[in-house]
Write a protein that binds this DNA or RNA. Structure first.
Length: 241
DNA sequence: TAGGCCATCTGGTCCT
DNA sequence: AGGACCAGATGGCCTA
């Protein structure tokens, strides 16, 4: 009897954990009810997402879409990378070109990601490692910005800092999606990403699916104030750029 | 069929 | 003592 009660508690606990993970799936890019990210890929993508947004904050510049996606996909498995690219209506080859003029890449071989993607101790391919014997270009090679050396910048697993996101300011507005009550990163909502933004990041959500400016704070929501200050900062940055 | 992913059970450990 | 948390084991399902 005691064992059965313990089993039931453990089941509930794991269900709670899975609910939380599902919540995480909904707030990271590329949410799809039909094609769910695995637990591990959800965590990896979330890590990349946090890192990418932190880099935006740190650099004070708007990233271009391509660089942002590249940062998101670092260390993800190939299927997940394809999924993210598909969500963003990008051809994976756009950021994993088939032909490379980089002498380091000639003749095929493989390349381990630097920076956020590679987590020591995790399985190598397909995680954190890309075989580009067919000419695929490693993600870290497509960065063109200067290196960051500021130790206050978030780093992944103590790994060397990756270059910041590019600064062309091509973030898109998700206002329509937010107004429609849909989560902006939903599978079907990536068209606007490819167009010129009006107020970049305006539509980015708070924790519970509301754009910051739409919210009326309840006592519970006030605990999210730091996040909203962060979003305000981001908005200011993007409006300036 | 092998490998990945997942849910569940289980026993151990720690905390209240 | 009872609950929370954790990690290992196991079996089912799915896909390449």
């Amino acid at each position: 009897m005691r064992r059965m009660k313990a089993n039931a508690r453990e089941r509930n606990r794991m269900h709670g954990l899975n609910d939380a993970l599902e919540g995480l799936r909904r707030v990271v890019p590329c949410y799809s009810k039909t094609q769910k990210l695995s637990k591990i890929e959800t965590l990896r993508l979330a890590k990349n997402y946090i890192w990418a947004l932190s880099e935006v904050l740190h650099s004070g510049k708007a990233p271009d879409l391509l660089s942002f996606v590249q940062a998101l996909c670092k260390g993800l498995s190939q299927p997940t990378t394809n999924l993210v690219a598909g969500c963003l209506q990008l051809n994976p080859r756009t950021f994993l070109p088939e032909q490379s003029s980089d002498p380091h890449l000639q003749g095929g071989g493989s390349y381990s990601f630097q920076g956020p993607g590679l987590t020591p101790g995790l399985p190598s391919p397909p995680y954190g490692h890309l075989d580009f014997s067919h000419g695929a270009k490693p993600l870290s090679y497509v960065y063109d910005g200067p290196l960051l050396t500021d130790c206050s910048s978030p780093a992944f697993d103590g790994a060397p800092l990756s270059p910041p996101l590019s600064v062309n300011g091509n973030f898109s507005s998700f206002k329509q999606e937010v107004a429609a009550g849909d989560f902006p990163f939903g599978l079907q909502h990536y068209g606007p990403l490819l167009y010129a933004p009006t107020h970049p990041l305006d539509g980015l959500m708070g924790f519970d699916g509301h754009a910051p400016h739409e919210r009326n704070h309840t006592p519970r929501e006030r605990s999210h104030a730091p996040h909203e200050r962060c979003m305000t900062t981001l908005n200011a940055i993007f409006h300036e750029s």
